[in-house]
Every structure is written in C-alpha cells, then in structure tokens.
C-alpha cells in the first residue's frame, strides 16, 4: 500500500512552492506517478532477473543416458529371470515371468541407492540400508517404504522392447494395472 498520508503532507508544501513559481512544467502529482511507475518497473525487472537466474540453474540438456531406449527382442529374455544387462547404463532391470515382461527402476525407494539382484536368494537387496524386494518389486524387508517403480514398456514397430523411463508406475497407487506398465507376449 502506498503511504497516502505522507504524500499529502508533502503536497501542501509543494503546492505553496508551486504558487510562487510562475511556470510549473511538471506537476507534483505527475512527478510522483512517474516515480511510482519507475519503482514498479525496477522491482519487476529485478524479480524477472532473479527468476531467470534461478531458471538458469535447471539445465535443458542432460548428459545422461537417454530415458527412452530399445532393449532388444522379447525372445532374448528368459522366463523367470531378472535381466541386469541394462542396469549399469540405464538403471533398469527387465523381468520376465511367463509371458509377462516388466521393467523395474534399479533405484531403491528408501534413499536412492542401487540394489543388487541376488539370484540365489531370489530378491533385490539394497546394500545401503538393507531393504529387500521380491522379484515383483514388492518390498518385504528393511526401511524401504514402498515397492520399486516400474517404467513404461511397450513394443516398438520393429518388434523390439521400448523402455520409456519418463513415465513411472507405482504399485501403491494402483498404477501397475495400467497396460503401459507391463508387456504381454
């Protein structure tokens, strides 16, 4: 809010001065509105500048492995196996159970460490804080609050599996029933 009172107080004195001046070129009111406009413009410019500097810190291009990649043909994946070939590069496991194929992110839902697939114990085990997940991705031990996340899986035109990590499906939200979260072959 503009402090009207203080403006009015000044106004009186100014008007008196104005009277003695024979040629008033800029009126007091006009001058003040310019000052006001100036301050508004300055504040807006400063805010825009800070916002742009903030935006500057969010990169547009990431030098990370692409989020969407082709993972070979479904026949390359054996039944009942967790395939770890994409883990190092793309942080995804591909699991096949019968004719069901799904892709799990290899990021622990506790604090983001990378779990390992222990084939003898049939579980994903996070070394950081001991969370354990079944082959389905459901958590059953340790501090992890929820199951591993699935990512979007589909068949590309050439018949290869297409993994799209931009879309994530969470079991506890009931998203695993979404047809894009698994593949039936």
């Amino acid at each position: 809010m503009w402090n009207v009172g203080s403006f009015l107080r000044v106004e009186k004195g100014f008007q008196m001065a104005e009277k003695s001046d024979s040629k008033p070129e800029i009126t007091r009111r006009g001058f003040l509105s310019w000052v006001r406009a100036g301050w508004i413009a300055f504040t807006a410019a400063a805010a825009t500048g800070s916002l742009s500097a903030f935006r500057f810190m969010f990169p547009n291009v990431l030098f990370e492995p692409p989020q969407i990649f082709k993972a070979g043909f479904p026949s390359e994946y054996a039944d009942g196996m967790v395939d770890t070939r994409w883990k190092e590069k793309f942080r995804v496991w591909i699991v096949r159970e019968g004719n069901l194929i799904y892709a799990l992110r290899s990021v622990c839902t506790h604090l983001g460490c990378t779990p390992n697939w222990l084939s003898t114990e049939e579980k994903f085990k996070c070394p950081c804080h001991g969370s354990g997940f079944y082959i389905s991705g459901i958590n059953f031990e340790g501090p992890a609050p929820r199951p591993l996340e699935r990512v979007r899986i589909s068949l590309a035109e050439d018949g290869q599996i297409l993994i799209d990590q931009t879309q994530i499906f969470q079991q506890e939200k009931g998203q695993w029933s979404n047809p894009e979260s698994f593949l039936i072959i």
């Binding site: 190092e88 942080r91 460490c113 990378t114 779990p115 070394p127």
Partner: peptide, 9 residues
C-alpha cells in the same frame, strides 16, 4: 560407481 552401492552408506 553408480551401479554399485557400497554396504552401509
């Protein structure tokens, strides 16, 4: 190594 979490972080 991003693919290999050490025990006890």
């Amino acid at each position: 190594n991003p693919a290999d979490s050490p025990p006890s972080t």
